[in-house]
Design a protein around this nucleic acid. Structure first.
Lengths: 129, 129
DNA sequence: GTGCAGGTTCAACATATGTTGAAGTCAAGT
DNA sequence: ACTTGACTTCAACATATGTTGAACCTGCAC
């Protein structure tokens, strides 16, 4: 019974902009880059489903964590319009896995630097004279 | 006795490029943006200390984790030429704290999305009809 | 059915992060 | 002293991520 969508609320660019906290121009930008998707009215205006603002909020935070818009769009490609919690869970998992790997890489480099001292040369102390 | 610098090896743009794994143009770019610093020879060529390649390697990973070049330069501003391990430790701490906060923010949004369902509307099931 | 807030496209601008090419200079080995 | 590879600066280009403005069109409230 996945078919009982209450009211398939459809939102304009301006509404999504308000709901997601970005400028209308950014909403159009994200749509043109596949982060969100839209259908068109008879008069050619965009209409978004309710997940749009959500996707944008996640996208902004993902960008802050180092992902590009292209990468985010690729991750979101798995999501249907009005995604199920399961779909979100899968995307969330892959998203977190990716950013955590980046953090691990950074930490590893910093650790090598602090104890290793020689993989990445730090100035002073040269045992080999 | 912090004064016994073995040989203050000074490196050219090309050497730093090889050591850090980026293009010479990128080395110049990072210097012009304060990620690394250089002194000049009598003939106006850049000479870097041995920490330069290291800074760049860390900077690249920090970029992948979401920091801008400007932010990285600001963090590295605390570092002297040929930084001590203590200086590196401080920078590493602030760097990790920053990227981990970004990851926390992302995770929080994703979590709100998975269980909350309503802070960030997900399509279906609307209890309030 | 009219008004007008808000939608459309498109091009230009802006900033970040680099790369490439031209034109000229430096340094290091022979 | 020459040669030659690597350096210098500067401008132009390229891509990513948006914003702004002009010119025009829609949808909804009255």
């Amino acid at each position: 019974m996945t078919v009982l969508a209450g009211s398939p609320r459809s939102l304009s660019v301006g509404e999504v902009a308000v709901d997601s906290g970005v400028a209308p121009s950014a909403v159009r930008f994200y749509e043109s880059h596949g982060v969100i998707t839209a259908v068109r009215t008879a008069g050619n205006q965009r209409r978004f489903d309710e997940s749009a603002a959500c996707r944008i909020q996640v996208a902004k935070l993902a960008q802050r964590a180092g992902l590009s818009v292209r990468e985010i769009a690729a991750l979101f490609a798995d999501l249907s319009a009005d995604p199920t919690p399961d779909e979100w869970a899968g995307v969330a998992h892959r998203l977190v896995a990716e950013v955590e790997e980046r953090v691990r890489n950074l930490k590893a480099q910093l650790a090598a630097l602090e104890s290793g001292t020689r993989l990445c040369e730090i100035g002073q102390n040269d045992p080999a004279r």
